[in-house]
Nucleic acid binder design. Structure first.
Lengths: 248, 248
DNA sequence: AACCAGCGTTCTGATATATGGAACACCGCG
DNA sequence: CGCGGTGTTCCATATATCAGAACGCTGGTT
């Protein structure tokens, strides 16, 4: 598998570069940043613009184009997990007033597919489309516990030399607990002060994603953790039922 | 401007083809549909997959990839109009229980940038990222009335030989009325039974978009149209104020 | 005012690269 | 088993891409 279209990948690199940096970029700067000649960058941009993937202002500075918006939301539309989860997220977020979101493994990475934010002034606000690490998140633990093979080599990829290297036995004990009680938790391990509870969504016996709620740890401390976990698990069960057509 | 990257445009065509058709596509079918040889399509797909713009199942069928989701939402994030309008849309949609959305001219087309849906069982549900025609929509009239030059040739593009050719005088009278009263309306002209009211958002004296509400015509008939129009205009004014930093 | 430095864009020949037909391995079906 | 289909790989040919220089322009400095 060495036959690739180098030009296409360069064009995509341009796209991602424009995406990662907020401000509009000029041809010369792009060329320097990506180590490509000006003329090449310009030609790529011309073609990207013809299709609406980038736009340019009158000064010749470029930024991502709206065609990307339609393409990106199209991806969401064809995710049955999102369609099944949306109303559940909405009702749960409204009742608990905290952020709920749905995460699944896509292209080898744990990806936030959808979210409904809570109402608090201080609230978790993950970005849809962003990815989360495996080893320090509730969803990551869920996948490690129920479908470690699905993670493939991704598990090792972000396995940094573990600043707080947990003993293997300890880790395996936590995963066993996750399987037994039906949810995973992450109390400030990833982001300081952030508490996350995640429950697995199964379809045809396979793990297809997770329903998750996140809130400041201080707020979770004022609630009954078990009752919140029960909510998340019930929500996941409803999503599962909807995916299998058992519930409207 | 004839120097373009043909390979890149072919790759983008593949992307849009996968986007337009819901089901996963095989290499051979794609080649037939786009009139490209199998080997070329395959090479393009390999590169698109390496960057996550497409994904493939184990049978070698391809579909759009999640990387597109991140790119698309990135476009939304850098739209100041969306940032300014979001909270306004939310509060208005909640109070009136009808769908509110924001539309602006992007890449020569009127594009739905964001929306908050109403609560009715029957409700307007435009797709974010989709485009609307110029001549038969409330937003189109707004642009024709306040910034016809911005539409460029787009105006003629979708100007079908006008099945119900309105007299030029009539048309101009309506645009003048739109300018005078501060909002545009569309009562079933585009989609049968759909009523739309749209108010302009100005920044630095230029039209930068529109705040819009849409509902079944029967429901508008039960309300005071003027009061709904006032709401929409007030909302647009708030968005304008937020964009200019005059309001939090 | 003239200048310089930077920009985006265009042009060019040398060459690296995409092309597409043919061959491959595999699968489901009759 | 053979057939028609798939996705994938190979390779010589020709083409589209590359890189650098030149163009016209704008904005700031001398």
């Amino acid at each position: 598998m060495e036959h690739r279209a180098a030009t296409v990948e360069k064009a995509i690199d341009v796209l991602f570069h424009l995406h990662d940096r907020p401000e509009p970029w000029g041809v010369s700067d792009l060329g320097r940043a990506l180590d490509l000649p000006k003329s090449s960058v310009h030609r790529l941009l011309v073609s990207l613009r013809r299709r609406g993937l980038v736009e340019s202002d009158e000064r010749g500075r470029y930024r991502p184009g709206i065609a990307l918006l339609a393409l990106g939301l199209g991806v969401l539309d064809r995710e049955p997990l999102v369609a099944a989860a949306r109303p559940v997220l909405e009702s749960e977020a409204a009742e608990l007033a905290e952020t709920f979101f749905v995460v699944a493994l896509r292209a080898g990475k744990l990806t936030v597919l959808d979210k409904v934010e809570g109402t608090g002034f201080l609230r978790a606000a993950p970005r849809v489309g962003s990815t989360v690490p495996v080893h320090v998140t509730a969803v990551g633990k869920l996948y490690l516990a129920h479908a470690p093979s699905a993670l493939g080599s991704a598990a090792e990829v972000d396995a940094e030399p573990a600043a707080e290297a947990v003993a293997d036995g300890e880790r395996e004990r936590e995963l066993a607990l996750t399987r037994k009680r039906g949810y995973a938790e992450n109390l400030g391990e990833w982001i300081d002060g952030l508490a996350v509870l995640a429950a697995p969504v199964f379809a045809h016996g396979k793990l297809v994603g997770a329903i998750t709620t996140a809130m400041p740890m201080t707020r979770l401390a004022h609630m009954e953790k078990k009752s919140v976990a029960d909510r998340v698990m019930a929500a996941a069960a409803r999503v599962c039922a909807r995916m299998e057509g058992r519930e409207l």
